[in-house]
């Protein structure tokens, strides 16, 4: 099972096992990863699952759709590595992916 590494704003890391096919947001909220809220349940409506994805995984992800791009523009402190993790589907080749959690979601 792929492992995902969440890095909290204070630098502490949390590794979780993820089922391929689930969204990263669903994995994070199920496993109580603080700072990933996922209020809208994964339909790209709230931007409370904003993360920064490290290279090389960021480049390996399918490109965000227009809705996600527009939501990210207005997220808290977006960067070139910002994604909404409800739009990322866990897959075997994402094993080891590092996702950094922003200091705030709103």
């Amino acid at each position: 099972m792929p492992r995902l590494h969440f890095v909290h704003p204070d630098g502490s890391a949390q590794a979780v096992e993820a089922e391929p096919g689930e969204s990263v947001m669903a994995v994070a909220t199920q496993q109580q990863v603080a700072g990933i809220v996922g209020e809208c349940g994964g339909c790209c409506s709230c931007a409370t699952c904003h993360v920064y994805v490290d290279s090389p995984w960021f480049e390996a992800l399918a490109a965000p759709d227009e809705m996600e791009v527009m939501m990210l523009e207005a997220a808290v402190e977006p960067t070139a590595h910002s994604r909404l993790c409800c739009q990322i589907t866990v897959a075997d080749d994402l094993d080891g992916m590092v996702l950094r959690i922003p200091a705030g979601q709103l």
Binding site: A47, M67, M70, M71, E73, A74, A75, L106
Partner: peptide, 11 residues
């Protein structure tokens, strides 16, 4: 269809 408006309006 204007999610930026929504996000900034919240703020």
């Amino acid at each position: 269809g204007r999610p930026q408006d929504f996000m900034f309006a919240k703020k």
